[in-house]
């Protein structure tokens, strides 16, 4: 069963992080990704560019509306994601808990809709 781990965090804090802290974060994610790969659960994952780079598109009254910025202006923003393939929610939850993002932000676990 595939689950998406959506990593939310305070983007402003992340960008303002000291070199030292950022320097710890990258290897932590690297090790996490490596552990997932070794365990055979990793399907995919990426870090996203900050929301200042986001563009929101929507069709209203037949016209394409384009907004500069993220879909929702909230304190915590989607900053990255992983897709994993594990047997059940318990396994997905334990991977979510190991994610570095779970200690400085929030990780939402969502099952993938199977057709």
């Amino acid at each position: 069963m595939k689950y998406m781990l959506l990593i939310y965090g305070n983007e402003a804090d992340m960008l303002a992080a000291t070199k030292e802290r950022a320097g710890q974060m990258m290897p932590a994610y690297g090790a996490y990704t490596e552990a997932m790969t070794k365990a055979g659960v990793y399907v995919g994952g990426n870090r996203l560019q900050p929301t200042t780079s986001a563009t929101t598109v929507r069709i209203a009254d037949g016209k394409t509306k384009v907004l500069n910025g993220p879909y929702a202006e909230t304190k915590e923003q989607l900053g990255g994601y992983y897709m994993i393939d594990v047997p059940d929610l318990d396994a997905a939850m334990s991977w979510a808990a190991r994610c570095p993002g779970a200690s400085h932000g929030t990780v939402e676990v969502r099952p993938i809709w199977t057709m």
Partner: peptide, 10 residues
């Protein structure tokens, strides 16, 4: 069902 919560003793 949707989140596949396991049926087992933890």
């Amino acid at each position: 069902r949707q989140a596949r919560i396991p049926f087992r003793v933890p």
